[in-house]
Design a protein around this nucleic acid. Sequence first.
DNA 1: ATAGGTGCAAAGCATTTGCAGCAGC
DNA 2: GCTGCTGCAAATGCTTTGCACCTAT
Lengths: 130, 130
Amino acid sequence: MTQPPAQRQTRQRAAVQALLNEFVDFRSAQQVHELLRSRGESVGLTTVYRSLQALSEAGEVDVRVNDEGETVYRKCSEHHHHHLVCRECGTTVEIAGPTVESWVDRVATVHGFTSVSHTFDIVGLCPACS
Amino acid sequence: MTQPPAQRQTRQRAAVQALLNEFVDFRSAQQVHELLRSRGESVGLTTVYRSLQALSEAGEVDVRVNDEGETVYRKCSEHHHHHLVCRECGTTVEIAGPTVESWVDRVATVHGFTSVSHTFDIVGLCPACS
DNA sequence: ATAGGTGCAAAGCATTTGCAGCAGC
DNA sequence: GCTGCTGCAAATGCTTTGCACCTAT
């Protein structure tokens, strides 16, 4: 019983993780890959997928599936807010909602759930597109 | 200017719509197809996809993308509730949240957004899996 | 009769997997 | 040096599209 298998630290892994830290919102594996390439880091798409998967299993990032069916990742952050998105032009408004967070906690507690996380999105038509 | 193009009523379309009315929760196109077949209705998978798309554009059904990346549909219902899902065993608890609905309306109004809809999911560990 | 609907087969995408070579430790 | 990591190419799975035939109106 030596040390548990542990993860090996590699350039690619570090690059993916570092990139995620630059954003507060969700990014798809393909976007991450694209961004890394565009800044000279040579990382295979497969590796990006695997790194993101590893990170999510380690609880380092949150995972979601967006409307296009893409899996998107975001580094876990305490200060997490939500978005109001225009279905027509894509305009996004950041909204703060202490209400939601506390409501989530309350509901989860009532049902005995632990380590909960949530996703919450509102889509509609913005003033300009109405 | 006669009647607008209008939709043609067909057996397949009706079957898909009828099936959706039997469920209150989300079903994938493939599930709908499978179910229709299993009860003798002969409908092509392509048609199921197209019917569901048409229904969603007509605002008759809600659309979502689940964790597996499948697009799922549900007939619009006034009484729309949310779920608390166990990340481990998949146990699902239905939760009613007038709080959320009203909060959504308020936020949307403040920003001038109209015809808004929202998705809201909470995942965590249920008592049994903690 | 005619425009829209249907369904098969093929194409498109995002993601996963097989496998040989590479690199932390 | 051993084991895990990488990345290409091929495979998978859901969804869309091309196209010829069919059918509600």
